[in-house]
Amino acid sequence: MKPAGTAARPLLLAALLAPSFASACSSCGCTLNSDWASQGYSVGAGLRFDLRYDYFNQSQLRSGTDSVDRASLELPNEREIQQTTVNRNTTLSVDYAPSRAWGVNVQLPYFDRYHSTIAPGDTALSYSQSSGMGDARITARYQGFSPEAGFGVLFGVKLPTGRTGTNFYAGPQAGTPLDRGLQLGTGTWDALLGVYDFGSLGPSVGYFAQAVLQQPLNSDSGFRPGTGVNVTAGLRYTAWSRITPQFQFNLRAEKRESGVNADVANSGATLAYLSPGIGFRLNAHWDGFAFIQLPVYQRVNGFQLEPERLFSVGLQYRM
């Protein structure tokens, strides 16, 4: 087993690029860093593939920092009263490092999302079901600032590859467009900028920390998602050869949407999670992981749906 500082390096290389989806219009996202199974690898040239699956059911209606009792809301209502959003997300990541200092990562997400809501003025539920490719990401990284390679930067772009034209399929709103914040893509190009640091706190404990800014660069059909920031800090126990326990703190803060087709009143949030999990080595090429994210702080603007817990599992293959 390598020292904890060495073990942490590949974790940050790929974990920085973990998916982080917009939280506007109740489409909250996983902020988990998932590539920690690579902690025992050296930092060098190579090709890696990651397949990750996230499941979370947004069933809790919230306003500010409180939950909302739907039974206390009269129908019809002047506000939208969302019921549930079930997310099943699969992300394929391809990571290539031509040298120890440089690397590039491409992410291809696939979303499967079910949503039900009561629109303003309605008394019955409307339903949507959308599945397909989300917004792809291409990100480069550089960590050649020191021989230890414990500090790095990343920069890249989110592409507008996800579909934005899904309609409700049933209920009073059938045939009308779904909220832009619940579409498979935002329709915008976003810049991604981040920094990270990692090392060891002892012979068996590694740490890592990172911050990533996501800044939309344009609007699409009267919609612009809010600027978002993801911050993660974690500890990892490295004394065991096959199993590695890990504990993460994940924070996402996002501003409100803007534009004539944005749900300005019900977008933007600050969300914090504690995320325990384990990684396990299957053989010389395959590793796996499993995590649960538990919310410890949720502050949303207007009315938004949030999950009580989020689940993530995945596999990694290295050449």
Rank of each mutant, 00 (worst) to 15 (best):
Q58R: 03
F291R: 08
A262I: 09
Q183W: 08
P160W: 05
A174H: 05
A170Y: 02
A265V: 06
Y196R: 08
V296C: 08
T84D: 15
D69H: 10
G194V: 01
S72Q: 14
N218I: 00
L11W: 14
N77I: 10
T164P: 05
A253Q: 13
T270W: 03
D95I: 12
Y207P: 00
A272C: 06
Y297W: 11
G121N: 06
T176L: 15
D197Q: 11
A174V: 04
G206N: 00
A290S: 10
R79G: 02
R309W: 13
G150K: 00
L310I: 13
T90G: 12
G194C: 11
S63E: 04
D112F: 05
Q107F: 04
M319V: 14
T123S: 09
A7G: 15
Q298F: 00
A101F: 02
L217N: 03
A15F: 08
S131W: 03
F289Q: 07
A239P: 00
F168D: 05
D190K: 07
L108D: 05
Y110H: 10
D50N: 08
P98R: 08
V195N: 07
A239C: 01
A239M: 04
P98T: 07
F289L: 11
F168H: 09
L11Y: 13
S72D: 14
G29Q: 10
L12V: 14
D95K: 04
I81S: 13
L12F: 03
Q82K: 14
P10K: 12
D190W: 01
R52I: 11
A7R: 09
A149G: 14
P307S: 07
G152R: 01
Q107G: 11
G46W: 10
P120L: 06
V104W: 02
V195L: 15
W286C: 03
N87I: 03
A174C: 06
R309N: 10
A71N: 14
E80R: 14
G302N: 07
S219M: 03
A233V: 10
Q293L: 10
Q60D: 12
N105C: 10
L217I: 01
L73W: 04
L92Q: 07
R318I: 00
A209Y: 01
S26P: 10
D197V: 08
Q316M: 06
F208Y: 08
T91H: 05
L310P: 00
I278D: 05
Q143L: 11
G150L: 03
N301I: 05
F289R: 07
G152S: 09
L159K: 01
S131Q: 13
L235Y: 04
R299D: 10
A97C: 13
F223A: 13
L75V: 12
P295F: 13
T238S: 09
Q82H: 09
T232N: 10
Q248K: 11
C30K: 02
Q83K: 15
L159M: 12
G234F: 05
G187F: 00
E254N: 09
D54V: 06
S267F: 06
I138L: 13
Y317Q: 08
G64T: 08
A45Q: 15
W189I: 02
N33P: 14
C30E: 12
